[in-house]
Nucleic acid binder design. Structure first.
Lengths: 246, 246
DNA sequence: CGAGGGTTTGAAGTGCATCAAATAGTGTGG
DNA sequence: CCACACTATTTGATGCACTTCAAACCCTCG
């Protein structure tokens, strides 16, 4: 086993969806896995395409989206390290329900989705974890829809920043936008211009400091008061945690 | 076994999620089930409340929603006969992730969610079906989010009507809105006034006929051209089918 | 330093929300 | 079967939020 293979196995083992899986299965998965480098803007697969493999992000950011004939696109999600995607094709006649594209130089590991099917059959705990992960995801999507319905642009941005912020620390909180503002805008369902203006408004209303992609604030309460007022969940949104399985 | 019990068992057996379950399990489920009548506007449960039972709609319409402190609400779904809800609480620490309320005189069957947990463990096929159902639902939610992003009010209404229309027949197509226009509006994320005006616009743009809750059209192509132009899925949306499990 | 993408700013337009009021529709009791 | 009460729906007028198109600015990286 090469160094890279070991690395892959380690990555796979660390994924929370596979927490209950036996080593033999994980080894098998790792054997069948492939690492793939993606250039910026490289498309990995498009929706309706036949699906044989699912993916785990190893490095970079992968945009999950769908687009209309005229090229307008709706961003479903933007994923980074240890996020899984493409696996829901198992349940959709082996067809990817969305497209995936690297937003920057990225690296993904792919594995055959057939193996997942097997593991669902063999390991009830795995099936349960996968269901739990799906349910969490549904909750997240519900929340996103809710946000689009009742929050305005500035509040959605505020919420996005809050979810990036580490809860723990006391003093100043510093948050770095993980990717282009244009990309954040598309994920939040607004135009780049709107994002820029709405962020400006958020700054004047909550006293946060913005310098490039870095946002600094004394404490989170101003921001949470501002954004979470127009949301059915209360601040730390502790009920929903992201990560794993899309 | 009384007549009502038989009726319940029949309903449960007919649910597609339970297609792979043994009769013994279904009997057990039916034994533990309860029928509940709900008045219009009666709340069945609210989000964050502890969940012991999941539900199947037997009659009427149940609104699934979340609301903010100031009472603004986001409608997640509106369910009717044979739709399941509340069952995702299994995966969320036995807490309902949304509220449920009858929009009219309704009837629901409730069953202990603990039994579902057991069945997931015992029956891999059931787990798989449930996963498939969840995946389908996720796809639906993605589509809804996409609609909010790239379709305008009239197009969303058109899409809603198309999904109600029977594909088969040739001659005129007649669609009846299944519930109040106000409720349709809230499901589509718009105000009642906007709904009314947007429906008027849809009428003038596509030549449909509207009389109360009844919509008539010569064929669906005008409508699908109008609405589906701003969507990543092509007309019959055949890839996604509703029903079962929320 | 200069090219190119990302970001901001400006000006104008559009779509939806909001508030207010009129109208249509439904169910009730007389 | 009609009149009343109440709710659902429509219509009008106005305002605001976001989009669009255009142009400037800024930052980074070769």
């Amino acid at each position: 086993m090469g160094a890279q293979d070991k690395e892959i196995l380690k990555t796979i083992k660390s994924l929370s969806v596979f927490a209950s899986s036996q080593v033999t299965f994980l080894d098998h998965l790792a054997q069948q896995s492939q690492v793939q480098k993606l250039q910026k803007a490289q498309v990995l697969f498009i929706n309706e395409q036949e699906a044989e493999r699912f993916y785990v992000v190893k490095k970079g950011w992968i945009k999950i989206f769908r687009e209309t004939l005229d090229g307008t696109q709706a961003v479903v999600d933007i994923l980074n390290e240890d996020s899984i995607f493409g696996e829901t094709a198992i349940f959709q006649d082996d067809i990817y329900p969305y497209s995936a594209e690297a937003t920057e130089l990225s690296e993904v590991i792919s594995m055959p989705i057939a193996l997942l099917k097997q593991e669902i059959d063999d390991n009830p705990k795995f099936a349960f974890d996968m269901l739990a992960s799906m349910a969490r995801f549904r909750r997240l999507q519900d929340q996103e829809l809710e946000h689009r319905t009742i929050q305005n642009a500035s509040q959605r941005i505020g919420c996005f920043i809050l979810r990036l912020a580490d809860q723990g620390s006391d003093g100043k909180t510093v948050v770095n936008l993980p990717y282009d503002k244009t990309l954040v805008a598309s994920l939040l369902g607004m135009q780049p211009e709107t994002f820029s203006r709405a962020l400006g408004k958020l700054k004047s209303e909550t006293g946060i400091t913005i310098k490039g992609a870095t946002i600094t604030m004394d404490d989170l309460s101003n921001l949470s008061n501002y954004s979470c007022a127009a949301c059915s969940s209360e601040f730390p949104c502790k009920d929903i945690q992201k990560k794993s399985v899309i």
